[in-house]
Each structure stands twice: as C-alpha cells, then as structure tokens.
Design a protein around this nucleic acid. Structure first.
Length: 736
RNA sequence: GGACUCGUAGCUCAGCGGUAGAGCGUUGCAUUCACAUUGCAAAAGUCAGAGGUUCAAAUCCUCUCGAGUCCACCA
C-alpha cells in the first residue's frame, strides 16, 4: 500500500468493478433470501435535466446513496433508479440560446426537425450527466435507467391525461395565463417569478371619475369600472354607464361594485381590463363584463389599439401617456409607487397576462387527498418544517395550466375536429362544467370538437364523423410528466417492479422543488395508482458558492462537481457535503472543509496500512463479524472497552441513518474513527500487540469500514480489498 | 400581507433547557513510529440586541435589528 491514498485511478476502477458485478441491481429472488422477507427499500433519483451537465448541488444526492448503500448492506432488496428529465421548456430555452449563437432561431426549422435536433443534443448531454453521477460513486441501478421521453413513459403520461380527462379533472378553458411574449409560451402560476419595481402610478381621468393605474396602455381593453360597494363616494354611479374620454375618442363604460376593490387604494376606483389582468378577469366574471384583448401574443398592441397598433407595450405606454397629458387626461403621477410584477423565470421579461385556451387540471380534488395523506402521517417530511409549506400550498391551490407552446415535450393527445369546433358538443364528460375563477360554475363551450385519446390518433370525430382532425400543437408542462415519475418508472423498468417497489420508501430532493414536483407527485400518484408514491420526503438544502451566494450560470459561479471530485476525491466531496451542517440547511461550498475531509480519507488509508503491517498471518485466526463475537474473544480490558464503544457506535450510526440525521452520523464517525480509534486505541494496542489484540483490532477496523462505507465508499472498499478480504465491502452485512 | 431559515471562536458551521463545541486557521511542543495529509497542548466567544418564563436559557416565549428564501390576484 502506498504511503498516501491516491483516489485517482482507484475510484473509477472500483465503480466499474461494482457495476460489472451487478451490485447495483437489487436482489429480489425470494429463493435467495433466508426465509425472512425483507421490505424493499426504494428511491427514485430525481431525474436531472438532460440539457446540461450537473452542477455542484446535484452532488447532494449523496444522501440518497448513503441510504441506498446502508439498506443494501442491511440486506434489504434495494433499488435506486436513475433517469433523466427532458425538461421541456428549460431545454428548449437552452437550445435556442445555442441556435442564437449560430445566428439561427427555432422558426428556421419545422417542428419535426427542431425536435430531432433537440433530441440529439439531449442524448449527448445525458451521457456526460450520467458519467458525473458515476464519478460521485452513486450506486444507481443503470439497468433500469429511464428517460421522460421513452416511448413507454410517454404512453403512461398520455393515459394519465386521458384518465384525468374522463374523470373530469381536465378541462379546456379560455382563461388568462401567464404568457411570455419573448419565449412564446404560457406558464403555470408557480413558474412566475416576482420582482419589486418602482413604476409610475398614473391618476387618469375617466369621465366623472379619476382612477389610478400602472398600465394606461391597456385602457382600450377596459370593459368596466369597479368601486367598492361600501364606498359612499361612488354609490350613485354603481350600475350606471359613464362616458369617458380616451386618446382614441369617447367610450361608454359600466360601473360595477365589487368587494375586491380597496377603497383606500388610489382613488378607490379601478378600471377593469379583463383580458390583461388577473384580478380584473375575475371581477369581470362576476359582473358579466366582456373581454377585449388589446395586446397580442407578440407583445404588441393589436388592432383594437387604433393608431397604437403594432407598438410594443412599453413603447405604447410612453406614447399614450404623452398624448393623455396633452389632452389633460392625467390628473397626477405618483412616481414613487412600488409594486411587484411577474417575470418569465427564464428570460426575465415581463409576463403578459393574456387570454388563451389551454388545458387545465382541476386541482382541488387532487389536493384534498394529498393533504389527507400527510395529515394522517402516511407521508412524513424531514426536516418537518417543510410540511407546513406543502400544506399551505395545497390548501390554497389554483388550477394548473399544463399546456406549453413549445415543441420539446410530450405532445398533448387531444385532437380537434375542424368541422364541429364551433358547435357545442354534448359530451358525457363532466368537463362541460369546468370551474372557472373562484366559485363560479360556468358552462364551458371549450370541449368544442376536442377528442382526447390515450395517444393514438382518432380516425374520425365521434360527433360528426369527420376525418378532419388536428392534434393540439401544444406539449405538456414538463412537470406534468415528472409528477408521474415514481409509478411511470416502476411500471416500465422491469417486470414486477411496480408490485415490488411501489410505493417507494424515500423521495429525496432539494427543498426548492417541493411544490413543483413533490406535491404534484403526491397528487398525481394518488390519483393514478390509488397509493402514495413515497413514504418519506427528505429534503436537503442548497449548496451555495464559497461566498454564500446561490450558484447560477448567469452569475458565472457554478462549480462542476467533477472538478472538485478530481481534486479531492469523491469520498472527500461526499463526506464534506454531509459533515458539519445540519441536514436540510443551506451550506456554502468550503474548500478548507473539502481539504479536511481529504485528510480524513488519507487517515483511514493509513490506519489500513498500519493494520496491514501488523496483521497476523496465521490463518486459523478468523475475522469476527459481530461485536458479540469479538467481545467473546477479547481478553485485555482495553480491548473489551473498545469493543463496547464500537457496539455503541454501531447503534448510534444506525439510528442516525434511520432518522435521516446524516450530519450527526458523519460527525460521530469522523470523531470516533480519528480521535478515539486511531489516536487512542491504536496507539494503545501498538505497545502491546499480540495475535489476540491484532485480531480484535482487525475485526473492529472492518466494522468501522462498513459503517463508513455508505459515506466514503471508494476508500473503504479499496482498503478492504487491499487487506485481501473476500468479495466486496459494499456487499457485506451491516454490522451488528 | 402570510410562512420559513439564519445571525455562536478570525473563517465555515454543530449544539437548541443544566457550568460554551468541531473543522480549518493561529501559537507552542513532539517526531526517523501507519500517517508532517501526524500527535500532544494552548490562546480565542458577555452564543445579534432588549425584555420575559424558569432554580437554571445560546437553547423556550415576545419584541427589535440585520442576512436570505418561499407563498399570496392590491389596480
């Protein structure tokens, strides 16, 4: 053995050895078990986006590997299933950036070509990403790897959509959506990022009234004026129509009373622009005000904006304000007004609320069950505080827009009959009465001609028999497929997997996708399978840069995990990530810590070296596996004490792992191994070494290697093999 | 407007009701011994601030001040 542990060469060699031996694939052959059926332990890896290499935060999946290796050693049929996510919009966005560099855009290609180009790009990226996971030592069962666009997964996603549609949970509705006119697609509410901005608040004369608005350019889309019903100032006008002056001439507008209007704000009068504001849309629903769209999906004013048509919104606002000032229509401007506006989370442009027909999932019934299973304790959160966020989200949930106007994704299996799209269809579906807005039951004519299937193109329209059917151009929100990941993977990976491994044991991910992903998996999983998708939700914190800033591509402070692995070794990286930070809290990447952990792996190595040197050659001395056995042969009182301490250690580490207290486990191991076992015990044995104490030292050391193995698999395995023990450490039983 | 996290030794962070802890760094000593990627030892904190509960508070409660995050339809 070399004097210094050199991770280079060792890690890749061992990983290949493990993978080749099939150790990552669970043993579920019942005849192989010793009679007693063990409960399987399953984790589905959060599928990384296939569009980019991993960032350092992904290395936190090490806690999953720790759990997996621990349970595998305990003898549980253990499955850790890898995969990749096509990451619909994200990927298309990244790809478009690449096209831009070449002076191209997505509009230069037809749908099929663009899709194929992105497909190739993603397949290339996937390899790199999977290699990174291997380099971190993750014992994933690669024989079961899945991709969200695999044919069989797509089939399941289609089937789910159909099931939900037939069950009345999907409806097609024209509603306001968050639309990015730059990216050309709508988003769900969760994808909107808000930013505080200081914008002028214009006080505009509206006939006899004055009202405050930040968006004077939407004035042409106004179809009402609202005041609070209790507001005495305006009571006389409620229900009346007033004539107002605009820069495009006179207009007649109705005044309505609605509780949503805050009499304290501005003048207590609000213009209602149902096509371009979420509040206004809802108020309009309540008072039957009509819709009038004045902004197009290209972000420009449309024909209803008269001479301003063709101008981008921002430009139009300026010009209109100038004209209004000239006409004396502006009473005052408050330019210190601070409010929050919704931005596209990718391109950071201001999102435009626009009316668009989209597919929505009715969330309330789904959320109800998802709340129930958590309240009943069927799903537990670690750390527990996240439960509150989860429940809060579900208790106030709004319907989910799952349509995206992009090509990269799973195309929605809905066809529209060109003949009867303008007629009302009598359908057995309850979708007819899709819920809109708050508590309004409203009949929808939105099923007009739509035929939903489980993926196959319908031959003819079930209503009129026409063969003129066109598939919806849109694709699913990527989270719609991710929401099905636990059952979709297990239903398609290998025969019998779903029966054996579902519901999975642990879902481990970063807390930032608790609502996007975890909550939706619970809802959809429950709906489709009738069972919870996982029993424990374990959430790790964010890994920030050394200065405590969030890593992001735009800031340029992202760290490639491979670089760090190269430098310090995967074991040191793994240990550093769980050591010294309360599990679940954010942490900053710390080079001194990585260095310290590298020293720790070296310390282990040298302990192994010492033991190798002092090892007795007599073959009748057999390594004892259980603490009990070691205790029986121990004669010296110091040995006995050490055996007992080790026994206690095993218990502690086991309990910590069962309770997802990774940092406690790591810290305890570090301290015990270095400062109790090496500094004190080895120093003591050194002076009095004989066959018996050597055997005990040896046996105890193996136990420590086993306890450490889930955390630092490479160095422990390498030492084990250097000491010429049989087989692989990773397949040895967990110490007792 | 709600919810959450964090503010503890120079740095990074544990501890979360019983007389302040670790790693790194600093200082001193040791060393041909498995390991100088080592060992032994030392210096270093009125635990953000104020008030309260308690025999006892870094730890529980309230408020204040800072750093950050998430949710929410105030024009």
């Amino acid at each position: 053995m070399d004097k210094v542990y050199n991770h280079k060469g060792v890690e890749e060699k061992l990983y290949q050895q493990w993978e080749k031996a099939g150790y990552f694939t669970p043993k579920i052959d019942p005849s192989a078990s010793s009679g007693q059926e063990r409960k399987p332990f399953t984790i589905i890896l959060p599928p990384p986006n296939a569009n980019a290499p991993l960032h350092f935060g992904h290395a936190m999946y090490v806690v999953e590997d720790i759990l997996i290796r621990y349970h595998r050693m305990k003898g549980d049929p253990t499955l850790w299933l890898p995969g990749a996510d096509h990451a619909g919009f994200e990927t298309q966005f990244v790809f478009e950036k690449q096209l831009e560099k070449k002076g191209k855009s997505r509009f230069d290609y037809d749908r099929a070509t663009l899709y194929q180009m992105i497909w190739d790009y993603v397949q290339e990226n996937r390899k790199g990403m999977e290699n990174q996971l291997r380099r971190l030592g993750f014992s994933l069962d690669w024989t079961r790897t899945k991709f969200t666009l695999d044919k069989d997964i797509v089939q399941i996603v289609h089937k789910t959509f159909k099931k939900m549609y037939d069950g009345g949970l999907i409806y097609r509705g024209e509603r306001l959506v968050n639309y990015c006119t730059h990216c050309g697609t709508s988003f769900s509410d969760l994808e909107v990022v808000y930013e505080e901005r200081q914008d002028p608040l214009y006080y505009i004369k509206y006939g006899p009234l004055v009202l405050a608005t930040t968006r004077p350019e939407t004035k042409f889309g106004d179809t009402g004026i609202a005041v609070n019903p209790k507001d005495k100032r305006y009571q006389k006008l409620v229900g009346k129509e007033v004539e107002i002056e605009t820069v495009l001439g006179k207009a007649i507008i109705r005044v309505v009373a609605d509780d949503a209007v805050d009499p304290e704000f501005g003048t207590g009068v609000v213009k209602i622009t149902p096509s371009h504001d979420f509040n206004d849309f809802e108020i309009a629903q309540r008072h039957n005000l009509s819709m009038k769209q004045v902004i197009g999906f290209d972000g420009k004013m449309n024909e209803h904006a008269g001479k301003f048509a063709g101008m981008y919104v921002g430009q139009a606002r300026k010009v209109i304000i100038e004209e209004m000032q000239q006409k004396g229509l502006i009473e005052k401007i408050d330019d210190k007004y601070i409010h929050r506006i919704g931005l596209c989370y990718k391109c950071k442009n201001v999102l435009e609320p626009l009316p668009l027909e989209q597919w929505f999932v009715r969330m309330e019934p789904l959320a109800k069950r998802a709340i129930e299973v958590v309240k009943k304790g069927k799903i537990k959160f670690y750390p527990q505080r996240h439960e509150k966020t989860y429940l809060n989200f579900l208790e106030n949930i709004r319907d989910w827009n799952i349509s995206r106007q992009i090509v990269w994704g799973i195309r929605i299996p809905a066809w529209r009959c060109q003949k009867c799209k303008n007629q009302k269809l009598k359908s057995k579906n309850t979708n007819q009465n899709a819920k809109i807005g708050n508590n309004e039951e409203m009949e929808q004519s939105t099923n007009n001609g739509w035929v939903v299937t489980d993926g196959t193109k319908p031959e003819k329209c079930p209503n009129c028999g026409s063969a003129q059917l066109e598939q919806d151009e849109d694709t699913f929100d990527t989270w719609f497929s991710s929401a099905q990941w636990p059952f979709a993977t297990l239903q398609t990976a290998k025969e019998g997997d779903f029966g054996t491994f579902y519901p999975t044991t642990v879902l481990e991910t970063m807390y930032d996708i608790l609502l996007f992903w975890v909550a939706r998996m619970v809802m959809v999983g429950l709906y489709v399978t009738g069972e919870i998708p996982f029993q424990n939700v374990v959430l790790h914190g964010m890994v920030k840069d050394p200065l405590g800033k969030k890593m992001s591509k735009s800031k340029g402070n992202v760290v490639d995990p491979l670089e760090i692995v190269e430098q310090y070794g995967a074991d040191a990286v793994r240990f550093a990530l769980v050591y010294g930070t309360a599990f679940g809290n954010d942490q900053s990447l710390s080079y001194p810590k990585l260095e310290a952990m590298r020293k720790f792996t070296n310390k282990l190595w040298n302990m192994g070296r010492f033991i190798a040197m002092k090892r007795i050659q007599n073959s009748k001395f057999k390594i004892q596996n259980s603490v009990q056995e070691i205790l029986e042969i121990a004669t010296h009182k110091n040995d006995k004490t050490m055996v007992k301490r080790t026994q206690k250690l095993i218990k502690e580490i086991t309990e910590y792992l069962d309770g997802y207290q990774f940092n406690y486990a790591a810290e305890r191991l570090y301290d015990f191994v270095w400062h109790e076992f090496a500094d004190k015990y080895i120093e003591d044995v050194k002076k009095r070494i004989d066959d018996n104490s050597s055997l005990i030292l040896n046996s105890l050391f193996i136990i420590l290697l086993k306890l450490l193995h889930p955390f630092t698999p490479f160095v422990t395995e390498e030492i084990y093999q250097q000491l010429k023990f049989e087989g692989s450490l990773m397949m040895q039983p967990w110490p007792k």
